[in-house]
């Protein structure tokens, strides 16, 4: 099976001239469909930068990054938007829209494609929220939910569009051990059911066992695969 994410000698640096600060150096990695890959490493090792480039949120200039067969290095905005729409994101903070209910937040993902009716969107969002165990919290606003519940809403938001890839950045950072493990387990279970690839950045060693593969990044270089 070909790689769904294919990174070849990717280099990235912040700043310019004498202040240039390399973040990623010749990173090469291939991730297959359905794989769950954890990227660990100390802060400042470039994990998050790596994730933002894969997700089409940051522009890279050297090397090659092919995500879903789209070249993201030196790409234009339209290519990146197209890639973003096929990726589910889970952020360190939940980043839910605080004026919307859980249900409305989740269906925001479906409003983009607009292939469904309002009824279908709400049904699918409700199903997804039920799948993450929030079937009884559909009409709660984020500030009426606990931190763990919010993160589960954001998992539902990431998965409801049936993305091929889910990118997660420290999804357990703001959660206690139990709700963190719960959230990641739900993520893993739902992803395995739909053959979704997950790229998860963390330095939470409690959740390493959900991974098919652990990659350690240090000073912009992959240390162990």
């Amino acid at each position: 099976m070909t790689a769904i994410i294919d990174v070849d000698r990717l280099s990235f640096s912040f700043g310019s001239g004498v202040l240039v600060q390399p973040v990623l150096k010749d990173v090469t990695i291939a991730i297959r469909q359905g794989e769950i890959v954890l990227i660990t490493g100390p802060s400042g090792s470039g994990k998050t930068t790596f994730l933002t480039i894969i997700g089409g949120l940051r522009q890279a200039f050297h090397g090659s990054v092919k995500v879903l067969d789209q070249q993201l290095v030196n790409s234009d905005e339209q290519v990146k938007i197209k890639v973003r729409q096929q990726i589910g994101y889970i952020f360190q903070q939940h980043n839910l829209l605080k004026s919307l209910t859980a249900l409305q937040n989740v269906s925001m993902t479906l409003e983009m494609g607009n292939t469904l009716t309002e009824q279908q969107r709400l049904e699918r969002s409700a199903q997804m929220l039920t799948a993450v165990g929030l079937g009884d919290r559909l009409h709660y606003k984020p500030d009426q939910l606990s931190a763990g519940q919010r993160q589960r809403v954001s998992i539902a938001r990431a998965l409801v569009g049936q993305p091929k890839i889910v990118l997660a950045d420290e999804p357990t950072a703001s959660l206690d051990k139990q709700s963190g493990y719960e959230a990641v387990s739900i993520l893993k279970q739902l992803a395995k059911e739909s053959q979704t690839t997950i790229l998860l950045v963390t330095h939470d060693y409690r959740i390493l066992d959900v991974a098919d593969r652990v990659v350690e990044l240090e000073d912009g270089v992959i240390k162990a695969v």
Partner: peptide, 13 residues
Amino acid sequence: RNEFATLKAIGYE
């Protein structure tokens, strides 16, 4: 700003 950036990240133009 964060909410808009989030929506941008998930593909809104």
